[in-house]
Nucleic acid binder design. Sequence first.
DNA 1: AAAGTATTTGACACAGCGTCAAGAACGTGG
DNA 2: CCACGTTCTTGACGCTGTGTCAAATACTTT
Lengths: 199, 199
Amino acid sequence: MRPREFDHDDVLRIAFDQFWRKGVRGTSLSDIARDAGVQRGSLYNAFGSKEALFLQAYERYAGDYLLALQKALGTGSLRKRLTAFFDLTITNFRSGSPPRGCPTTRGLMELGAAEGEGLDEAARQAFASLVSRITALVQDTLSAAAKRGEFNGNPAAAALHIITVTRGLAVLERAYGDEVQLRKIASHTIDLVLDKKGS
Amino acid sequence: MRPREFDHDDVLRIAFDQFWRKGVRGTSLSDIARDAGVQRGSLYNAFGSKEALFLQAYERYAGDYLLALQKALGTGSLRKRLTAFFDLTITNFRSGSPPRGCPTTRGLMELGAAEGEGLDEAARQAFASLVSRITALVQDTLSAAAKRGEFNGNPAAAALHIITVTRGLAVLERAYGDEVQLRKIASHTIDLVLDKKGS
DNA sequence: AAAGTATTTGACACAGCGTCAAGAACGTGG
DNA sequence: CCACGTTCTTGACGCTGTGTCAAATACTTT
């Protein structure tokens, strides 16, 4: 076999950076090829298609991001954990200059569009999967807190609510780009969730 | 002057339908031209560019949608008003088959991508403007309810929170397509907002 | 009726996606 | 140590989509 002349992971990282900055549809394989110092055809040979390349690059990101969230949710009082969770979420949206937004949310709204195309469906599942795993993480944190008497609401409902708010924050970030506003909403949400009385 | 051979508003409606179903980047002017029975060049002559056409079509939708929301928020107890508001929001996401999602949220995440292109910025403002106007509508409703003693929270913060949740619902809709789940989240949100004690 | 003006039409240039055949580089078996 | 086969690379091609332009067209106005 002839060995590959470029590093698979390097290309994935470079590609995801472009996808993140310019959107999936807004990034051309020529851009990635130029940035990575690789011929366009080689990308097709190695990854098959633009969407397949994106998916691999996204999975890479998703794994890293999930680990970071897990860490953020792992220490301190429930309020501290949730605050760290929202902090990391917002910091992620606002990373880069200009800020790149939430790749999951952007991908979902961008690719969840086409009707009936096979690969878009695979992408949708990848996005949905990360959202589900984050929801589970939050729910576990709430359940554990409930056992310790730190939380007296419904963990499943509250986790879903929190996830919904984070997705909404990703949208407002694109609309206004106002980080202070995002943090206010996050803080208000934590108050709402923790102050809730029964059920 | 030679008169135009097609109806301006018809084209806007047909175009928006396509944009809504297939996304802005996923819709070609050829698609719209075919659907509208118009030559592609005529669209450029009449609207200037794809984005300009989309913007006009979107403004048309935004006006109609805002009116409907205003109506939904106009009658009954605060809980009834908010329920009607979320109902209309979710119904809007779920309209069409397959469901088309929220055009504003999809547009924001899809077009808010490119860095520094002029027309994308105009689109971003159009989306942000509708979001702002809806927020104002909700806030006014809450303020009025507060004066009647029906609500004792902070109208501005609560309105922002509600808007954030609706944007999050738009994202979850694309991720899971589960309308029942969306309605549960909405109902839970109303509970949270109305049960909140001080501040 | 003739002139003027806006619209339509079709051709063009350009960029992006994806495919293909041909060439190149490396490991492996004789 | 050399020839073979496998895999990667390269460049050309077809297709679709965006946007531009000049020429042709059809209507209104004088």
